[in-house]
Simulated scan of single mutants.
Amino acid sequence: MSTNFKKAYKFAGYTSAAITVVLTLSLGVFFYTTNSLNIYILIGFAILCYLSSFFIIQYRVERFIYKRIKKIYDDVSLLEASSFSKNQITTDMATLTKEVERFAQDKKLEIEGLKIRENYRKEFIGNISHELKTPLFTVQGYILTLLDGAMKDKSVRKKYLVNANKGVERLIYIVKDLDMITKLEVGDLNIYKEEHNIIELVQNVFDLLEMKAAKKKIELAFDKPYPDSIMVMADRERIQQVLSNLIVNSIKYGREGGTTEVSIEDLIKNKVIVRISDNGEGIAKENIPRIFERFFRVDKSGSRREGGSGLGLAIVKHIIEAHAEKIYVESQLGIGSEFSFTLEKAK
């Protein structure tokens, strides 16, 4: 602190000393040649001269630098002069340079952050446009065909209306998922924790997805028998949604004739970890950090054939984080994937 104090006032101190020496010597020589001058008066004059010079110079230099630097900040459109205060001004140029460099570095980081968010925004808009336009064009195509005369044929009319309805249902599905993830991201979705048996919940999901898995001859199973209940404290409906999304994904990308396996283990005293593993396609290492992003698809063509909103894993992540828990993923391309998440055990 003493070093910074010396640097801040060094210019004014040296300049004031020089002025004081010159004026005191001049005064001393003048009075020495004309009349005798009391030494105490000379010393008093030197002290008064030094102090007055020091404060005047310090004040004027600070004002001068502040006005010039503020003008530079105002002239640079990417920087905001409002974040620049008089307290940052010093007559020590090294300190002043550091302040300006720190300011510029902060603004550079802000600009880089804005660029990242802008790229994400563009990608998100592109993805959502693609997701929405496919069912929209499908519905429009069927309706225009009906209006062009196909509606006169009852069998064609019914078929086209059924197909158009499927397109509308897909739009509703995407909009519902978007609404949910928006609520999750802004913390507007309430989580109602209750005590329930996670084994029973997994079995319910197995029963719901049994037919979907059977189409690809994929077996849904526990890693071992669980004769006893494992009670957890969580939102039953939301955790069922998490399990459904993860198991549906394992079926989508699973190998025909493969297996989706669920295991529940004690992690620490008050936590359990639920693992959903498969022997399917797996995920490339470079894609793993992005799989929880909205609309990000590992296999764009394959996943669109399978359907889905592209929001499943993003919703899963937000639901788990809303429970103040963690989700993990391990995967190896061509071997399989394992998604796991923690839950609080019921007391």
Rank of each mutant, 00 (worst) to 15 (best):
V61A: 13
Y253L: 06
F339R: 03
F5P: 06
V202T: 12
V175P: 11
F341N: 07
L42Y: 10
N35S: 05
L311D: 03
L267V: 12
E286L: 05
L147I: 14
H196F: 15
V22A: 15
I174V: 13
S155H: 11
V262P: 00
A150C: 11
R236P: 02
T20P: 06
G141A: 00
I143L: 14
F124W: 12
A346G: 10
I47Q: 01
K122F: 12
V156R: 06
L109C: 07
E325C: 03
R63Q: 15
T97F: 14
S277K: 07
E210C: 12
F296R: 02
E110Q: 13
Y73S: 03
L246H: 01
S82L: 03
Q140N: 09
G336W: 02
I251R: 00
V21M: 11
D92K: 00
A94Y: 12
S277A: 14
Y40L: 14
M151N: 15
V61D: 04
E237S: 03
I276K: 04
A346R: 02
D228V: 00
F222L: 11
S337E: 05
R294M: 14
V61C: 12
I69E: 13
S331R: 03
L343H: 00
R255I: 07
S337L: 01
L220H: 11
L208W: 02
Y32A: 08
I291E: 03
I65F: 13
G126L: 00
K212Y: 00
Q140H: 10
V175A: 14
K67N: 14
M1T: 09
I43R: 13
F11R: 08
